[in-house]
Amino acid sequence: MERPRYLEDIEPGESRKTYGRTITETDFVVHAGHTGDFFPHHMDAEHMKATPFGQRIAHGTMTFAIGIGLSASEINPLSFTYGYERLRFPKPVFIGDTIHTVLTIASRADDPKRPGYGRVVEEVRVINQRDEVVMACDHVYLVEKRKS
């Protein structure tokens, strides 16, 4: 189990980078099967040849799931996800791209509804092998405070 980190132990500006993960055609097929999203942008190579992308693009929800999943290498048992905000996909992800995630603590504050907890906002950037941001969001955590 990871070292428990209370709200007071987390500092804005902290940053970490995950390992990379290469996206495969199997990822596209499995994700489409799980979600029922067989949209031609993801599944029809011939259709996509005639688009500005020139090839199939990854599901945004798949990019999100893999990008966030990569960050699970560090788990704080004193925190849990409150939600995700400002989710964007500024660049496409293609089969064969290798992505990694960079996470930076943007802020830390008391939670207005829960006296024993604070909120941490972590800036999430999923980046491809060309150093392009392919997904961005803010991950909001509730983190237990030290008992006084």
Rank of each mutant, 00 (worst) to 15 (best):
S79T: 06
V93H: 00
E25K: 15
T22Y: 11
T51Q: 10
P90V: 12
D131V: 06
V121I: 11
A50K: 15
L78Q: 05
T24N: 12
V121Y: 08
D27F: 02
Y82R: 15
H139N: 11
H47P: 04
E122V: 15
E122R: 11
L70Y: 04
V121L: 12
T101F: 05
I10A: 00
I127R: 03
R114C: 11
Y117G: 03
T98Q: 10
K17I: 14
G116N: 12
T22F: 06
R146Y: 01
I127S: 04
Y82F: 14
T18S: 15
I105F: 05
P40S: 06
P4A: 03
P112Y: 12
M62D: 02
F28W: 04
V93E: 03
T35P: 06
K145G: 02
M48A: 08
R21M: 03
D97W: 02
V133N: 09
A65L: 01
E123S: 10
A65H: 02
G69F: 03
N76D: 11
Y84Q: 03
R56N: 07
E132H: 12
E46S: 01
S71M: 06
F80W: 14
L78I: 05
E8D: 01
R16S: 05
M43K: 05
Y6S: 01
G83Q: 06
H139E: 03
I127G: 01
T18K: 09
I10R: 03
E25T: 13
P52D: 07
G118H: 08
Q129W: 06
G83C: 02
I23M: 14
T24L: 08
Y84I: 14
R114D: 06
P112H: 12
P52A: 04
R21K: 11
V120M: 09
F94E: 04
S79A: 11
G118E: 09
E2M: 14
P40L: 12
G69M: 00
L70R: 07
H100L: 05
K91G: 10
V102M: 10
K49P: 01
I66D: 00
A58L: 06
S71V: 03
G36N: 07
